[in-house]
């Protein structure tokens, strides 16, 4: 803010996040962070379900308090977030070690992981709702 007051540039600082057009690479990168944060926040739920499975398999009966479709949506969200994070992570490692940093190559890898992720979403969806 101090910098803003000192500058003579009269143009306004425009930071409406909804109006900033993110290039595909930036979107893929930010989603990697978002999915990472989400997974830390759901960790306690995963620990609870592990404890339930190990010590009280009968606990599954009480899960009916929450409707089935909500469980399925939650599971689908966690599994798709996880797989996105893995795919985007592999993409980062690829660009770290291959030395390919051109816009063309990174755009292509973005599209590849989005396609693979879509396939995974279809697999999770059919496993949850069709089996």
């Amino acid at each position: 803010m101090v910098l803003l007051k000192k500058t003579t540039d009269p143009r306004p600082v425009f930071l409406n996040l909804l109006k900033i057009h993110l290039p595909l690479n930036a979107l893929v990168s930010i989603l990697h962070r978002v999915t990472g944060v989400i997974m830390i926040l759901v960790l306690p739920l995963l620990v609870l379900s592990l404890a339930g499975v190990i010590y009280k398999p009968g606990i599954y009966r009480y899960m009916a308090i929450i409707p089935n479709y909500l469980w399925k949506i939650a599971i689908a969200a966690i599994l798709t977030a996880y797989m996105y994070h893995v795919l985007a992570g592999i993409r980062h490692i690829y660009h770290d070690f291959s030395g390919h940093h051109s816009l063309e190559v990174t755009n292509r890898s973005s599209i590849i992981i989005l396609v693979v992720w879509t396939v995974w979403i279809i697999i999770v969806g059919s496993r949850l709702w069709l089996v």
């Binding site: 499975v53 190990i54 398999p57 606990i59 496993r127 089996v131």
Partner: peptide, 24 residues
Amino acid sequence: IVPLLFFWVLHAEFVSPMVWKQFL
């Protein structure tokens, strides 16, 4: 987590808590 996901995806039917316990 990848073996865990494959275990789940490749199971043709509902995976019961006992089966999960045995696997985990």
